[in-house]
Nucleic acid binder design. Structure first.
Length: 488
RNA sequence: GGCCCCGUCGUCUAGCGGCCUAGGACUCUGGCUUCUCAAGUCAGCUACGAGGGUUCGAAUCCCUUCGGGGCUACCA
């Protein structure tokens, strides 16, 4: 059975068919492909499966490339960078597939099939009724010259269909072990459409062989198409030792055990990017779906992932995607950011939310404000709301909090605070805290949470905010006091 | 229906015959800390789908069964 004992260079490809934004499942596959290539010191190939041009657009291809780059999954061969086995877009390799298809026809591995869609459907219908294995019935396998002439005169255009021999195919899946498919359940399959365009089954096998791919790590949904790929290798005259090794990755599923989809939670990586998830958090989380480094370890950097990743530790059972866990990991990764990086990554979210205009004074305040909220956010998208009070021109207390400070007692409290705050020498958080504690806690005998809550609302506009005294220091004496005064 | 894959806490997982009265993480609940929210910290809840074997011993091996998923296209 295909099992090459002789070491050959590791070459792994990620070959999506970008019919939309790359989604969580795609990326998990890409991540494992990439990690395996990097772990082994092999080559990571990025190939676009765009034989179905109606569904794959240039924008999607570009978006896929951008997403991979954003995540840090850079490729050694593929679009933009080229490579010795290009082109890497299947739409640019059509002549190659045509040549092979012609050869398969000439060598008797494949044949022209003239059956119409209606006829094939009728066959399937009959098979369903008769409760037998569905699939092509071999009608055109051995057509006479007369028969062919008759079909041609009807104007029928044939597809190229691969002939599956009797017997079975067994291969060793790196994750699932030995898998066997009886050819009774692998019907003759189409390689080339009537319009001359190649199908996935042809293109994928031809490319993997010609690009010298050594390991095919791909989704579990392709498991049952493997015998067909192997048949194409055989028709190409590839020796068993040169077949790629297969590893079929378990699915990433949505909450209710269904395949991940829009209904189940967001699947597009772009969506996560816009919501302030860090690429390293997404990769770390996705790496844990169907794989684990063992030893109760969960936190891994991209570098550690490439060091630790092995196919042996990949699971065979599907995993469910859990947004809560992603958020937790994202929070960890945000806290692990250096102040400089946190600033750099937060900035676009602040400006997009129109909280910042980008002036030098704002940036100076921001530089001091970010450290006090770094451990308070789970995503970058939460940053603007948390710091808005520092930068708004027209300050307003949020409606749900306003009622808590409009009673007489609160007004009195705010009034005392306002008066005593005048005496603060250096407007620092220490100075502010000292004065406020003395006036409100010691002298008025209030509970800290009651007293400071009122001031918090008055100054930041919300009952939830960064630490109060630091916030007031950053806001400055003038603005802090004027906000208090306006509510007395 | 047929073929194939899969089955440990709610979720992701550790476990690869004795170290398991099953460990970690997320979630949830309660406590501590505390100017709010977080963070941190302590504790708690909850799992080997079921039934048969094999074995001195099974979450780990085998069989059956049930359950979930994939494929069954001139999609990938």
């Amino acid at each position: 059975m295909p099992n090459n004992s002789v070491a050959r260079p590791v070459r792994v490809r990620f070959a999506p068919s970008p019919t939309g934004d790359l989604h969580v499942g795609n990326i998990r596959t890409a991540l494992f492909d990439w990690a395996y290539a990097r772990h082994t010191g092999g080559t990571f190939i990025f190939r676009i499966e765009d034989t179905d041009k109606d569904r794959v657009t240039d924008e999607y291809i570009q978006a896929a490339a951008d997403t991979l780059k954003w995540l840090g999954l850079t490729w050694d061969e593929g679009p933009e960078v080229g490579g010795p086995y290009g082109p890497y877009l299947q739409s640019e390799r059509l002549d190659i597939y045509a040549t092979w298809a012609a050869k398969f026809l000439a060598d008797g591995f494949a044949y022209h099939c003239y059956c119409s869609a209606d006829e094939l459907e009728a066959v399937r219908e009959a098979q369903r009724k008769a409760n037998v294995a569905p699939g092509y019935n071999g009608h055109c396998r051995d057509l006479s010259a007369d028969h062919i002439a008759a079909y041609k005169s009807e104007g029928r255009l044939p597809v190229v269909r691969m002939r599956m021999p009797d017997g079975s195919t067994t291969f060793t899946d790196l994750i699932r072990g030995e898998v066997t498919f009886d050819h009774n359940f692998v019907p003759d399959f189409v390689l080339v459409r009537a319009n001359g365009s190649p199908l996935y089954t042809l293109a994928v096998a031809v490319d993997d062989v010609m690009m010298k791919v050594s390991h095919v790590l791909r989704g579990e949904d392709l498991l049952s198409s493997t015998p067909r790929q192997i048949r194409v290798y055989q028709a190409m005259g590839v020796s068993e030792a040169d077949y790629p090794l297969f590893a079929h990755l378990p699915f990433v599923m949505g909450q209710d055990n269904a395949k991940l989809s829009k209904r189940n939670g967001e699947v597009s990586i772009a969506w996560y990017r816009e919501r302030g998830f860090l690429p390293e958090a997404i990769c770390n989380y996705l790496a844990l779906l169907g794989w684990s480094p063992g030893e109760d370890r969960e936190d891994v950097t991209m570098k550690e992932l490439t060091e630790l990743f092995t196919v042996e530790r990949v699971h065979s059972s599907p995993a469910r995607f859990d947004m809560k866990k992603l958020e937790a990991i994202n929070g960890d990764k945000i806290r692990a950011l250096s102040p400089e990086l946190f600033l750099e990554k937060s900035l676009p979210f602040l400006t997009d939310a129109k909280v910042l205009t980008g002036s030098a004074e704002e940036l100076a305040v921001l530089g001091k404000a970010l450290p006090i909220i770094q451990e308070r956010v789970a995503t970058l998208a939460e940053v603007p709301a948390m710091l808005k009070f520092l930068f708004v021109k027209e300050f307003e207390v949020e409606e749900s909090s306003l009622s808590k400070i409009t009673d007489e007692e609160s007004k009195k409290l705010l009034s005392v605070a306002y008066d005593r705050l005048q005496s603060v020498g250096d407007w620092t958080h220490e100075g502010i805290e000292e004065v406020l504690r003395k006036a409100l806690i010691e002298e008025l005998g209030l509970k800290p949470r009651i007293a400071f809550s009122a001031i918090r609302i008055a100054v930041t506009g919300s009952h939830i905010s960064p630490p109060l005294f630091e916030s007031m220091e950053l806001l400055g004496r003038e603005i802090s006091l004027s906000r208090l005064k306006s509510l007395i």
